[in-house]
Computed example of a mutant assay.
Amino acid sequence: MSIALPLALLLAAQDPAWNCDNPQAQQEMNYCAAQDAERADAELNSVYRTAIERARAADREYAGLADGGGGPSDGGPGEEATLREAQRAWVSFRDAHCRLESFEARGGTMQPMLDSGCKATLTRARTAELRGPNPDCPENPEPAQLMQCLERGLTRADAALNRQWQEALTALPNSAEQLRTAQRAWLAYRDAHCAVAIPAVASVETQNLEGVLCRTRLTEARTRELADLAAMGE
């Protein structure tokens, strides 16, 4: 799943003194965005390995349910195989989607930065998905405990979003009205998406839990998007 960035590495060798805390030239911005994408990818790989181990354990537990250890079978792939299939499909989606998003500056010097920034954002959102429920939640909690824990996570995510929103407005004063329009549209999208993204056949309890998780993941992703916008400035 590693992101190949030979150009970024070449540029780093040419100018190792570039400052990613405050990049100025476009090549410097491209390099720093690529470095951020690499960091996001490294975190994803770590969380993915943990998710694979969980999937293997679930497969072993499932196989041990039947007498003799043969386990019941539905004739399909197990959790590990399904997770690997899903991850391969996600990587293909991410790379194609971000290539398309970068076409806003197709052939220009900004294209690598747009591609890397998109990959960093989607990769961190995928990492949150694979990590699952808030790691601060107790193991094997009662449904009510889990809901309370997840709601606290959503409250923290909303607070972080609001702080980043104010920073974005400060960094982009000339684009404040466009930002407000975009943010209102995003809020409507988040709530509508999470209202329909949960299978109707799930229990009400499961729908409520998944709804909170959905809003938390999208809120965290939006916070990172606003941070990227604020970092670019005007």
Rank of each mutant, 00 (worst) to 15 (best):
R99H: 11
E101V: 15
F103M: 15
E104H: 14
E104P: 07
A105I: 06
A105Q: 13
R106I: 13
G108H: 09
T109L: 13
Q111V: 11
Q111H: 06
P112D: 09
P112Y: 12
M113K: 10
L114G: 04
L114C: 08
S116M: 05
G117W: 03
G117N: 07
C118W: 05
A120L: 07
T121Y: 06
L122N: 03
L122F: 13
L122P: 03
L122H: 08
T123N: 08
T123G: 12
R124F: 06
A125K: 05
A125C: 01
E129D: 08
E129C: 02
G132N: 09
G132K: 10
G132C: 06
G132M: 07
G132V: 06
P133Q: 02
N134Y: 08
N134I: 00
P135C: 00
P135D: 00
P135G: 00
C137I: 05
C137A: 14
C137Y: 05
P138L: 02
E139K: 14
E139T: 12
E139C: 01
N140F: 09
N140A: 13
E142C: 00
E142K: 11
A144R: 11
A144C: 03
M147Y: 07
M147I: 02
C149M: 08
C149F: 07
L150D: 09
L150P: 09
G153I: 04
G153W: 07
A157G: 08
D158E: 15
A159G: 08
A159P: 02
A160W: 04
R163L: 12
Q164W: 10
W165T: 08
Q166F: 08
E167D: 14
A168Q: 04
A168T: 15
A168F: 04
L169I: 04
L169T: 02
T170Y: 07
P173D: 03
N174C: 02
A176C: 02
Q178N: 13
Q178E: 12
L179P: 07
R180D: 05
R180S: 06
R180I: 11
R180W: 02
T181I: 06
A182Q: 10
Q183H: 04
A185F: 03
W186M: 12
Y189S: 07
D191K: 10
D191P: 04
D191F: 05
A192C: 05
A192H: 12
H193D: 10
C194H: 04
A195W: 01
V196P: 00
A197Q: 10
A197P: 01
P199E: 00
A202K: 13
S203I: 01
V204R: 15
E205W: 01
T206R: 11
N208P: 00
E210N: 13
E210R: 14
G211H: 04
L213C: 03
L213K: 12
L213D: 01
C214L: 04
R215E: 13
R217I: 08
R217F: 05
R217G: 02
L218H: 10
E220K: 15
A221E: 15
T223P: 00
T223R: 13
R224V: 03
E225R: 14
E225Q: 15
L226Q: 03
D228R: 14
D228L: 15
L229C: 05
L229H: 08
L229D: 11
A230T: 07
A231C: 03
G233D: 01
G233A: 01
E234F: 05
